[in-house]
Design a protein around this nucleic acid. Sequence first.
DNA 1: GCCATAGTCTTCGTATACGATTTCGTACTC
DNA 2: GAGTACGAAATCGTATACGAAGACTATGGC
Lengths: 222, 222
Amino acid sequence: MAETAAAARPASKSEQAYAAVKARIVDGTYSPGYRLVLAKIAEDLGVSVVPVREAIRRLEAEGLVTFERNIGATVAGIDPTEYLYTMQTLSIIEGAATALSAPLVGAADIARARAVNAEMRNCLEHFDPVRFTALNQDFHSILFEHCPNPHILDLVHRGWNRLAALRSSTFRFVPGRAHQSVDEHEALLGLIETGAGADAIEKAARLHRSATLDAYLAQSHS
Amino acid sequence: MAETAAAARPASKSEQAYAAVKARIVDGTYSPGYRLVLAKIAEDLGVSVVPVREAIRRLEAEGLVTFERNIGATVAGIDPTEYLYTMQTLSIIEGAATALSAPLVGAADIARARAVNAEMRNCLEHFDPVRFTALNQDFHSILFEHCPNPHILDLVHRGWNRLAALRSSTFRFVPGRAHQSVDEHEALLGLIETGAGADAIEKAARLHRSATLDAYLAQSHS
DNA sequence: GCCATAGTCTTCGTATACGATTTCGTACTC
DNA sequence: GAGTACGAAATCGTATACGAAGACTATGGC
């Protein structure tokens, strides 16, 4: 990584704190329910509490942590209904983003996506839920990153972050869904490739995600 | 002891600052492009800069202000593309919220909505864009407030706040759209009343909003 | 007269300090 | 022995202070 001397932006302490805490939440160092103590984090990062406070509040706004007045912050997650809400929201947002993005997705992008999907298919044999989930994110990123509306794109990213924070490599719980998911990916690519209507693409992308949610719900209710 | 309303805690300075600044943005005291100087706001509110800083950052996360490092904060808005993005996002989110909310909307709600719409129709004669916009928000609120997914509901509220901040009583620019809008409201109520499918309701709600956007675009491009 | 440069001034960024609030532990009473 | 009350420790909330970065202005050279 290029901290290329002078060219590197010093990055404010707030940013550093934000990135550091977010990374630890996403990678699981701070698991859901973990108590985030301002002073401790500040010391760990070698900064004062003020920037850390700001970072925590930003993470709160994104829904990665919950904050109670005079009590402190804890890493959000765990709650299954929270997972449900997040998935449902993401299904809507991501569906829209994918549809808006589709006209801007070129042949090269399709090829890349297909390569990722092939990797996912390989992954099905000796199944690794974490790797599969990572590839899944790569795949969908290719499809929605061209979305011309920055607000929607931002919401999609927030949704993915929340899911990551919830530590729900969903496929860990419903491995059977993985196979079907790969097939749906191919179908989705076909729709985009043939220039299908925005409605069709949106519906397909949305159903793709809500099907995963349904699989999870069916699993956990049994 | 009992949580009597009177004994309500004074609400943190951060909250006060947040509410105060937000109110001034929404009511137009701070118009788009206005330079928000931390020290000045802090003095006005009789607090220190730290809570104000936090408030500004929260508003930034909501998209009501933009913030540049070492430069300062300014009230967001003005930019027509920003308006476009916000409307498009809201059309998607509000459409989904309305559809999810529909099964929970009772006869009493329908009646209230119809009353509001009647007022809007009256309003058409001696047209007051600001009042019309306010009623419009009331109308839609009735339809989406029952949305069971709090995330989506939150996103809808953020969208409306952004629109308010942009000061675009859209109907000021496209008064001709108002009449059509009232009719679409009635159609939407009909769909909900007759228990139409979620797809139909979502599509109707979304089109209702994007039609307003299209009218605005057609107007401004001419 | 115009552009470049230096100096100042405003405003943000962060550290430190202190007061406020909550929680936990301990001792005391019934 | 259980419950309550008091006190200490931990943690958050906010004020103040100082250093740094950007922007304005004035002055000098071309």
